[in-house]
């Protein structure tokens, strides 16, 4: 146990943590669904909010009725559920993100933030490969890549959330090169990308869940103050 605690930042994330994250993500998606659809109206087909809400509600229900025992299994079930319920491109994209991240975590009962960072990198790379997209194409990768970049530099989940938020905002002046928005050419300029925005929401939910501590309530140990600060930062960014 003490060996695990000295692994990196000392925080070990278990299956229950990942269930709390995805439940928080479902709440965030539900809260922001109208905004996501509004962003998707000028450059997409105005279904991103509804699609994400349907998918993440299904994830929340699947995890609530039969929560798997490991972080990897939680993410793989969530990913599979998104693929089968979303109905738009975000289904296979977020489904691939969570499934590949989960697969990379293996069958460990607990994972460190460092291990999660590495697994998320694998998941994001798989999304890039599936979509054939890269940074600057005005897609969810413009939020996800800066986030995993911040994580792999050891800046932690709150910084990753901030990086995702800034990455999403930075899609506004870009011209879309992937997806339906790319048909609009220059007319896609001046709109924030809905996929990058929902990606930032998921990262914010992750940072906030981590800031709440191991038990899901306010952390009661010495790291509580630091985590609480991270939570406010993430809130402020979202």
């Amino acid at each position: 146990m003490s060996e695990e605690l000295t692994d990196d930042e000392g925080r070990e994330l278990d299956a229950a943590f990942f269930v709390r994250w995805l439940t928080a993500a479902a709440e965030a998606v539900d809260r922001e669904a109208d905004q996501l659809t509004e962003l998707d109206s000028p450059i997409g087909d105005a279904d991103h909010g509804g699609n994400m809400r349907r998918g993440f509600f299904a994830v929340r229900d699947a995890l609530g009725s039969e929560p798997p025992g490991t972080p990897g299994a939680v993410l793989m079930l969530a990913g599979r559920t998104l693929v089968s319920t979303v109905g738009g491109a975000s289904g296979p994209l977020y489904g691939t993100l969570l499934r590949r991240t989960g697969k990379a975590l293996g069958d460990a009962g607990q994972v460190s933030e460092k291990e999660l960072a590495g697994a998320l990198r694998t998941g994001v790379d798989a999304v890039a490969q599936l979509a054939g997209a890269s940074e600057g194409d005005k897609t969810m990768l413009d939020a996800l890549l800066p986030a995993v970049g911040a994580l792999s530099e050891g800046h932690g989940l709150a910084a990753a959330s901030t990086a995702a938020e800034r990455g999403a905002e930075a899609t506004t002046p870009l011209q879309a090169r992937k997806g339906r928005a790319s048909y609009l050419g220059e007319r896609s300029i001046g709109h924030q990308d809905p996929g990058a925005t929902s990606s930032a929401l998921l990262l914010a939910a992750l940072a906030q869940t981590a800031a709440l501590g191991v038990s899901g309530t306010e952390a009661e140990n010495g790291t509580g103050a630091e985590s609480g600060e991270a939570g406010r930062t993430a809130n402020g960014g979202a």
Binding site: R80, V83, G87, G88, A89, S90, G91, P92, L93, G95, T96, R99, A126, L130, A131, G179, R180
Partner: peptide, 14 residues
Amino acid sequence: LGSAVLTVKSLLAE
């Protein structure tokens, strides 16, 4: 197009 391509690709990858 779009999600039809991505959904089939991700099913094959699974």
